[in-house]
């Protein structure tokens, strides 16, 4: 564990500089241990792809005191320390007009579109971090044979629900947003809704798989999720 200072108000406990599911799991375990201890002065925490970030009030909890606590908690971590996670199965439509970059990606990877979809569907993914946009997951576990860099320049608008990949991760855009990931399809599932008691469907540590749906089922699901007659917490189990 390496502690990095981000000013007097955030400390980052870093376990790796790369994309590393073990580092991510360790960060979640450290967060669970910290939450169990609940020291005064913690404002927010975020388990990430390779680290745990803790925002704290510098007047109530100094960097030195927090550092000491994190070192002690880290030394006491076991594999059983991790918080329980949820499993989700998200429907994805890979048909056009949703699979914006399917052809281009398959071409660059020198495989067929069907093979690309099959390899993406075969993945068992873990949410390594939820961030950047409300409810936006960074999913680890992408087949390394699908490695492609981000698009340059990024798209100004990636449609809501887009399922995309870049480098060693795949993701889902909860809202329309600018972004450079390669879009393979679209999920009808809503990932973030302020009307829910807990507004983000996904949390770091959750396990995600994708299920292929055709255009017709996608449109039906989309309408039902939008109308609120279907809730992803029940429908995506």
């Amino acid at each position: 564990m390496r502690l990095r200072l981000a000013g007097d108000g955030m400390l980052v406990a870093e376990y790796s500089t790369g994309i590393d599911p073990a580092a991510s799991a360790r960060a979640r375990a450290l967060e669970a241990a910290l939450k169990a201890r609940a020291p005064a002065g913690i404002v927010a925490s975020m388990p990430g792809i390779r680290s745990l970030a803790i925002i704290h009030d510098p007047v109530r909890l100094t960097t030195r005191a927090l550092s000491k606590l994190l070192e002690k908690l880290d030394a006491g971590l076991t594999t059983a320390s991790e918080a329980p996670s949820s499993r989700w199965i998200l429907p994805v439509c890979y048909e056009q007009p949703h699979g914006l970059d399917l052809d281009e990606c398959a071409g660059k990877l020198k495989i067929t579109v069907d093979e690309l979809i099959a390899r993406h569907l075969a993945g068992r993914y873990t949410a390594l971090m939820v961030g950047s946009y409300p409810g936006h997951p960074y999913l680890g576990g992408l087949d390394p044979s699908l490695y492609l860099p981000r698009r340059v320049p990024p798209r100004v608008r990636v449609p809501r629900g887009s399922v995309a990949m870049a480098e060693l991760m795949t993701n889902v855009y909860p809202v329309e947003a600018p972004g450079g990931w390669n879009v393979l399809g679209c999920t009808a599932a809503i990932l973030f809704d302020l009307r829910w008691e807990s507004p983000s469907l996904l949390s770091a540590g959750d396990e995600i798989t994708f299920r292929r749906v055709g255009l017709e089922e996608h449109d039906t699901l989309y309408a039902a999720f939008e109308a609120g007659t279907l809730h992803p917490r029940e429908a995506c189990r």
């Binding site: 981000a6 000013g7 108000g9 955030m10 975020m46 990430g48 792809i49 970030a53 961030g131 950047s132």
Partner: peptide, 11 residues
């Protein structure tokens, strides 16, 4: 570039 990690205000 880095593999994305946390931001805070003032970074």
């Amino acid at each position: 570039e880095i593999v994305s990690d946390a931001n805070t205000t003032g970074c």
